[in-house]
Nucleic acid binder design. Structure first.
Length: 268
DNA sequence: AGGAAAACCTGCGTGC
DNA sequence: TGCACGCAGGTTTTCC
């Protein structure tokens, strides 16, 4: 489900409602997510901040950090009053003011993890590429990461050690906007193309975050679909339809077991 | 080591 | 209507 913009939209959607809140208790109805949910020692602890690193949400507490990943189908919303538990609503974090942060995840590819040390050093975060909207994510970085790699560029930009936050939709969309074929070996991109791709990854993610902000549905007391917002895609999921730029037919293939969409006329 | 494939799950649409 | 199948916005683990 969520790529970086959806995770960031979730973060913003719930953060203001949980500022300064203190945990009363955690209720785990289904401990089996991507990994078993460990003991979360946060009862009585005040939430200091909700941050984001790549597609992970970091709930900062005085004694450690709760790492949450939404996987493919995870979502979070804040309830201001008790609401009947629906299917796939696996975790509640109950706050002393009565609010509930409720996690739903039908496919259970998501994760709840705990660390009491620097979360950046956590094995799942330590090797991630820099944030794509930060200065450290630059052409030097991308050039180094793409060098000598034979893997297709579309697969490479979905590798979190190369680029974080770009999932299957925005990989196709960024390559379309950069005019680069997803089939190209990563190392075959020249400096110009790398710069273009980097700029389009940035602007695609930034635009999607902005769209999330404008079409943001309520993350409080919503119907459980919080976390999704409509995306207008140029090529993703548009196989056989006209390319919005040239009108030629959008093509589809499969790379690393994921669908890829592109315009063979506009992308080289 | 890099790269390809399998693995973890449930739900939904399609076609027979 | 039922059922098999393929596919879904992710990422780690395993295997070659």
């Amino acid at each position: 489900m969520p790529e970086l913009p959806e995770v960031e939209t979730t973060r913003r959607g719930i953060a203001s409602h949980l500022a300064q809140a203190t945990v009363r208790q955690v209720i785990v109805r289904t401990p089996r997510l991507r990994w078993p949910i460990p003991e979360l020692p946060i009862a009585g602890q005040p939430l200091l901040a909700i941050e984001r690193r790549a597609k992970y949400l970091l709930f900062r507490f005085p004694n450690g950090t709760l790492l949450v990943h939404l996987g493919m189908t995870g979502s979070l919303r804040v309830l201001t009053r008790p609401q009947a538990v629906q299917a796939h609503e696996h975790v509640d974090i109950e706050w002393v003011d009565g609010r509930i942060l409720r996690y739903r995840d039908p496919r259970r590819f998501g994760a709840f993890l705990w660390t009491d040390s620097d979360p950046e050093q956590h094995p799942l975060l330590a090797r991630l590429a820099p944030e794509p909207l930060c200065a450290q994510f630059d052409t030097d970085w991308l050039t180094r990461k793409l060098a000598r790699r034979s893997t297709p560029i579309k697969v490479a930009i979905m590798d979190a050690q190369c680029v974080v936050g770009v999932g299957n939709i925005y990989a196709s969309e960024s390559l379309f906007r950069a005019g680069i074929s997803p089939l190209r070996p990563a190392a075959s991109l020249n400096a110009n193309e790398i710069a273009r791709l980097l700029a389009e990854i940035r602007s695609t993610l930034a635009a999607a975050i902005a769209a999330g902000g404008t079409t943001l549905r309520d993350y409080v007391d919503s119907d459980g679909k919080a976390g999704y917002f409509s995306l207008q895609c140029a090529v993703y999921d548009r196989a056989g339809l006209p390319c919005p730029h040239c009108g030629q037919v959008v093509a589809q293939t499969r790379q690393a077991q994921r669908a890829t969409y592109w315009c063979p006329h506009c992308q080289h």
